[in-house]
Amino acid sequence: MIELEAVEKAYGSGSTEALVLKGISFRVEAGEYVAIMGASGTGKTTLLNILGCLDKPTGGHYRLEDTDVVSLDDDALSHLRNRKIGFVFQMFHLLERTKALKNVMLPLIYAEEYPDDAEERAKKALTSVGLADRIQYKPGELSGGQQQRVAIARALITDPAIVLADEPTGNLDRRSGLEVLAIFRRLQQEGRTIIVVTHDQAVAEHAGRILLLSDGAIAHDRPVAEPRDAEAELASLPKEDRR
């Protein structure tokens, strides 16, 4: 599904050039759940942006479902992002003055064909992340965890094969974080490929495989013997305020 070969990324040029990714190679098969870990500034976000076709590598090869991404032009990359990839950002990136429903529908505006049931689909996506009763709320009226789930619903609206998340639990408390991780697990069970960037070992252990990034290169690539179960952990949490 995803195949990186000696991918390099340099920022700046000439004397100020900084090589952030120094030859990264790995494969991710369809349906895998991968966590990317690493210290701050090692290039996790940079790598994820390349995986999500938001940015192009300055060297090496990136194949996504047999498409050579490096050779694509800007429009083709946009189409690819719209059809294949769902992005969940660390900062949520919701439209502040716009209701949850419209926020979730945003990617459909740029779909090749606008579905007649766009609103239905958005409602379904919001329901699937447990926000059926928050459809008409604006981001400012939602908690951080709820906002992140709206962002996930938005990533799912186009039914993408790949979901990429950059520190999806970074701004959330433990319960909200676990709820998000439970959703990712479910998405994997639906057959999607999940790649999550995190610096939190506990979060990474929900994935089936952990890639450790260090100084722009892959230091480890190991499977998780027994991935943690977010549902079970949620159930074991003391039952105080729900949401």
Binding site: D75, S78, R81, H93, L106, Y110
Partner: peptide, 16 residues
């Protein structure tokens, strides 16, 4: 700008 970046990220073309 962030709204623009977001729209581009979810598939908006430059001309959109």
């Amino acid at each position: 700008r962030r709204e623009i970046g977001l729209r581009r990220a979810v598939g908006a073309l430059r001309r959109d």
